[in-house]
Amino acid sequence: VPGRRFFSLCASGRPSLSYRELKDLKKTNVLHIDVRERWEIDRFGKIPASINIPLGELVQALQMDPMEFEEQYNQKMPSKSDPVVFSCLAGTRSKQALAFAMSLGFSRVQQYAGGLEDWVKHEPPEKK
Rank of each mutant, 00 (worst) to 15 (best):
V1P: 05
G3I: 04
G3S: 07
R4W: 08
R5N: 09
R5V: 08
F7H: 13
S8K: 14
L9P: 11
L9Q: 15
L9W: 15
C10V: 14
A11G: 10
A11V: 10
G13H: 13
G13Y: 13
R14S: 14
R14N: 13
S16E: 11
S16Q: 13
L17F: 13
S18D: 11
R20L: 14
R20D: 15
R20W: 08
E21N: 12
E21H: 13
L22I: 04
K23N: 12
K23L: 15
K26G: 09
K27V: 11
K27D: 15
V30W: 12
L31H: 06
L31F: 08
D34G: 11
R36P: 00
W39S: 11
W39K: 05
E40I: 07
E40V: 08
E40G: 03
I41K: 06
I41W: 11
I41L: 09
I41V: 14
D42N: 11
D42L: 15
G45F: 08
G45Q: 07
G45I: 05
G45L: 05
G45A: 09
K46W: 00
K46H: 14
K46F: 01
I47N: 04
I47C: 12
P48M: 12
P48F: 06
P48E: 14
A49G: 13
A49L: 13
P54R: 03
L55A: 05
E57I: 00
E57P: 01
E57R: 13
E57L: 11
L58P: 04
L58N: 04
V59F: 06
A61D: 09
A61W: 10
A61Q: 07
L62G: 03
L62N: 03
Q63S: 13
Q63V: 02
M64V: 06
P66W: 07
M67T: 11
E68I: 06
F69L: 04
F69G: 02
E70I: 03
E71T: 10
E71C: 08
E71H: 09
Y73F: 13
Y73S: 06
N74D: 12
Q75S: 13
Q75T: 10
K76L: 10
K76H: 06
M77I: 01
M77E: 01
S79F: 07
K80F: 02
S81H: 10
D82K: 01
P83E: 09
P83W: 01
V85F: 07
L89N: 10
L89D: 06
A90K: 09
T92Q: 10
R93Y: 04
R93G: 01
S94E: 04
S94I: 05
S94Q: 08
K95L: 14
K95W: 02
K95F: 06
Q96F: 02
L98I: 10
L98Q: 15
F100A: 07
S103E: 14
S103D: 14
L104T: 06
G105D: 06
F106A: 03
F106P: 03
S107E: 14
Q110R: 15
Q111V: 04
Q111D: 13
Y112Q: 00
A113C: 05
G114E: 00
L116R: 04
L116A: 01
L116K: 01
E117L: 04
E117F: 03
E117M: 04
E117G: 02
D118C: 02
W119N: 00
W119F: 04
W119I: 00
V120R: 07
V120D: 00
K121Y: 02
E123W: 00
P124T: 02
E126H: 03
